[in-house]
Design a protein around this nucleic acid. Sequence first.
DNA 1: TGGTTGGTGAAGCATGCGCTTAAGTATCTC
DNA 2: GAGATACTTAAGCGCATGCTTCACCAACCA
Lengths: 117, 117
Amino acid sequence: MLHQPDQLDLMFQALADPNRRQMVQRLSEGPASVSELAAPLQMTLSAVVQHLAVLEGAGLVRSQKIGRVRNCQLETQALRAAERWISERRTLWERRFDRLGAFLAEQGTETEEGNGT
Amino acid sequence: MLHQPDQLDLMFQALADPNRRQMVQRLSEGPASVSELAAPLQMTLSAVVQHLAVLEGAGLVRSQKIGRVRNCQLETQALRAAERWISERRTLWERRFDRLGAFLAEQGTETEEGNGT
DNA sequence: TGGTTGGTGAAGCATGCGCTTAAGTATCTC
DNA sequence: GAGATACTTAAGCGCATGCTTCACCAACCA
């Protein structure tokens, strides 16, 4: 099946690479040019541009060219979406877990009350 | 460079696949066996087991075999870690953004006060 | 005007990923 | 004990990903 990737696919895929996360980290501290993003990374500028394209494709970064330098910024809407997806699943499970704990605790006291051993 | 993937790499990589996210979704509603996880997915059981291995490798799922069925549960610690990483970068940027907004607003009022045009 | 800077685009290559088939191995049920 | 069930493991295949090199172009600057 040829699967057309949705926004969350692209986002998590983008964040899965440590170099790209480092770029996001850098951008969270403020806007940067492509060369500035590339500086701490052990790879060619060309590779960095390709990583940047992945981040933009995922909606995590927005950029515009001013003169000959490209200015890049973080796009927090997309980050929010990923955060929300995780948070919703996590809390759903944790609520279930809490109910189970409460149930077991209650069962425990009932058993103690019931047979007194 | 042979890169040894860390926990966040594995986690985001695991969540990047829609089938695996569907498995996480299912597990957020309660524990399940491998076949139960496989049921809604259009692929062989073998493929599902491989996806499950990715999720376990990322620390997102824990499982134990009871008799001949394997019981799988969500592991929320790992989800928390991913959530926190995203949240920290997002809020860092947003605080910066807010400060910038405040600064520009202030500049605006100062300009208005200053030249009165 | 000519050199440097900052980025772009295409081609190619090694590796990894997602899937399948096929052939097991325990465990339950009758 | 003879199925049936619930995985498990290994091999292999096609496509995607992450890089590199190379050629290129459009600002900027002396």
